[in-house]
Amino acid sequence: MTTTEQVPGYTVGTWDIDPVHSAIEFSVRHMGVGKSRGRFQSFRGEIVTAENPLESSVTATIDTNSVDTGNADRDAHLANPDFLDSENHPTATFRSTAIRADGDDYVIEGEFTLHGVTRTIALETELGGITEEGVLGLSAETTLNRTDFGVGPDGGAMVGEKVKLTIEVEAQLRS
Results as ranks from 00 to 15, higher is better:
Gly129Glu: 04
Gly38Ser: 07
Phe26Lys: 03
Thr125Cys: 07
Leu114Asp: 03
Lys162Tyr: 14
His30Thr: 14
Gly110Leu: 00
Val67Gly: 01
Gly137Asp: 03
Gly137Cys: 13
Leu144Glu: 08
Thr4Ile: 09
Phe26Leu: 09
Glu5Gly: 06
Glu161Arg: 10
Asp63Val: 11
Gly9Glu: 12
Pro81Lys: 13
Glu87Trp: 13
Phe94Thr: 01
Thr61Phe: 05
Asp16Cys: 00
Glu111Tyr: 14
Val58Phe: 05
Thr59Gly: 09
Gly32His: 12
Val20Gln: 06
Asp105Gly: 09
Thr14Phe: 08
Thr131Lys: 06
Gly70Asn: 05
Glu109Val: 13
Ile121Lys: 04
Leu127Pro: 02
Trp15Pro: 00
Met31Ser: 10
Met31His: 11
Asp85His: 05
Asn88Lys: 15
Tyr10Val: 09
Tyr106Ala: 05
Ala50Val: 11
Val28Ser: 14
Ile47Leu: 14
Glu126Arg: 04
Asp75Ile: 07
His115Gly: 02
Arg95Gln: 10
Pro8Val: 09
Val169Gln: 00
Val163Asp: 02
Leu114Pro: 01
Asp85Leu: 02
Thr3Glu: 11
Gly32Glu: 09
Gly152Arg: 01
Ser66Ile: 15
Gly155His: 13
Glu111Cys: 14
Ser57Met: 11
Glu87Cys: 12
Thr120Leu: 11
Ser56Asn: 10
Ala122Asp: 01
Val151Leu: 09
Val28Cys: 14
Pro81Phe: 10
Val163Cys: 02
Gly45Leu: 01
Trp15Asn: 05
Asp85Arg: 03
Phe83Leu: 12
Val117Thr: 14
Glu5Pro: 02
His21Ala: 02
Glu132His: 05
Arg39Glu: 02
Thr143Ala: 09
Glu46Trp: 04
Val12Ser: 15
Leu144Gln: 10
Phe94Cys: 01
Ala76Asn: 05
Ser175Tyr: 10
Asp154Leu: 10
Pro19Gly: 05
Ala60Phe: 06
His77Trp: 08
Asp82Met: 11
Arg146Leu: 11
Glu170Pro: 00
Ser86Glu: 02
Ile99Ser: 03
Ala76Gly: 09
Asp73Ser: 13
Ile17Tyr: 01
Gly38His: 06
Arg95Met: 15
Val107Pro: 02
Met31Phe: 13
Arg146Ser: 04
Ala157Glu: 14
Arg44Val: 01
Arg119Ala: 12
Gly34Trp: 12
Thr93Val: 15
Asn65Gly: 09
Gly13Arg: 06
Phe40Val: 07
Ala79Pro: 08
Asn80Arg: 08
Arg44Phe: 03
Asp102Leu: 07
Thr147Asn: 09
Thr118Gly: 06
Asn80Glu: 08
His30Cys: 08
Leu54Phe: 14
Thr91Gly: 08
Asp73Trp: 12
Ala60His: 00
